[in-house]
Amino acid sequence: MPRADPSLPAAANPPGRGPKLRLNLHLLGPLLALILLVVLGASLNGNFLSPANIANVLARSSFTGIIAVGATFVITSGGLDLSVGSMAAFLAGVMIMVINALVPQFGVGFGVIAIGMAVGLVLGALAGVGNGLLITRGRIEAFIVTLGTMGIFRSLVTFLANGGTLSLNFDVMDAYRPAYYGTVAGIPVPVIVFALVAILGELAMRRTPFGRHCSAIGSNEQVARYSAIHVDRVRLLTYVLQGVLVAVATLLYVPRLGSASSTTGVLWELEAIAAVIIGGTTLRGGYGRVWGTVIGVVILSLIDNILNLTNVVSPYLNGAFQGVIIILAVLLQRSRRATS
């Protein structure tokens, strides 16, 4: 054969140009930002690393975290779902109404809660099917479809609550409480659920045909189509998965305060999307990593936590502090891309 040395680069643009250090930074950027944030928090307040505070932060992260895992798949395949926050509020509202309606007939018990949960999950899946079909069959931009359903879900919950707040039956609340406040081996239940979802999500993204197909579609839809991938079916599935995960998050949210109102889940969609991007998934699709998203979510929660634990930043500057950290976290990993 013509060339004796197979190590010679095949193209005029050799890929090994970026030094190894920067490559690692791209990979570990979010982790580095997280570590910096933890160091900052620990130096500002002695209670920051207390088990109770860590449990609080992780448990709170679990709602947007679980939703963001779903968003990772949607975004990786080149889509977007803006409706998740409203959907969570709507699902929470319906779950509360269903449970409250069943109590007089069946009494307070795990059965009633289980039915409520099942209704939430089914409804979440259906909401995802709705979004997905409008996007794949209706050929409407994901941004527009989910912007529309975002408004619809938000209005529906306002309507169901008659403009006020839907509150869970007080006795059911006692039975349901452990789903948020309970612990297993000292670890809060929502944290365990979040971890499970994240591990399964990472596995699905990295090691299943579904995950591969998502990134292939996000990377180049034509290549995916020519590679015998059912593009529409995979797309639809990402939205259904997103809907189900929103429902899972809702199952944990309802027992926290036992209520749903039109303020429930406001801006969760942006938090979820921000977490996904901070974690290193590309917004235009094609590459996603669930573990990065998990770190992104924890980073966002830690920012709030640190602000509440200290008086260093004037409360009027909360938003600026958040903005700086978010941009820094992304900058850390993008330095490589900027040079290539």
Binding site: T208, A216, S219, N220, Q222, V223, S227, G286
Partner: peptide
Amino acid sequence: RGLLLRSRMRPNLTLLALDRFSRILI
């Protein structure tokens, strides 16, 4: 239409025949 230019060789190679490389996991 043929290759995912931003991806590595391995995922490109198996994209069409992925079900031959996976049961549940790849």
